[in-house]
Design a binder for these strands. Structure first.
Lengths: 96, 96
DNA sequence: TGGCTGCTTGGCCATATAGCCAAATTATTC
DNA sequence: GAATAATTTGGCTATATGGCCAAGCAGCCA
């Protein structure tokens, strides 16, 4: 009962982290290899601070992880199974 | 480019619909068979109007569909592949 | 028709989120 | 140490969302 409630809550946190087009764009990009916030900022086209906050949201849920290399930071996807979500959705939406 | 933006946006809408513990609870219940809003209201324990609005969110994204039978309404899960999401998350969370 | 039940919609408030700019932080290079 | 570049954090505002209550609508039965 309470366990279920907790589990649903934690799962919902993950979905919430995925529930933004810029963050999906980030995940899509990271599925093809590591990337810096700077590069992602160019890709997405919003302010660097905005992108950084999106990355923080994904980090907080363990979806991505960062690695410092000198003055740069590289992010990588920790939860590749989320890519399967896209297939599921595409199936229903009939797109892609 | 623009297509990608659109696709990410529509996918994000789906994730947004899934990003609430009560709605995940609904999906979990519907994965075991049809159910009325009344039953779901008892299960979740919030106001009937709140549950109805959650169902509207899921309906709008094509995740569930309703069927009228006299004065009652039965909801069913249209997107069973979302259940796979739970496995993915559990895998990472190590729970369940 | 009138009343009942089941469900949805409208209205309102409290809270959360996304975005920008500005400022702080960390590492590099001169 | 100062200047620069990359990233993050703080602060603010605008918008979206969730929740309740109250009201509306649809089907059923007396």
């Amino acid at each position: 009962m309470q366990d279920d409630k907790d589990r649903f809550y934690r799962q919902a946190q993950i979905f919430k982290a995925l529930a933004h087009s810029s963050r999906l764009c980030i995940i899509d990009r990271l599925s093809r290899g590591e990337c810096t916030p700077g590069e992602l900022t160019k890709l997405i086209g919003s302010d660097a601070s905005t992108v950084s906050k999106h990355l923080a949201v994904l980090r907080a849920q363990g979806i991505v992880r960062e690695r410092r290399a000198g003055s740069e930071v590289y992010y990588r996807l920790l939860m590749p199974c989320v890519l399967g979500f896209f297939d599921c959705i595409a199936q229903v939406h009939g797109d892609q």
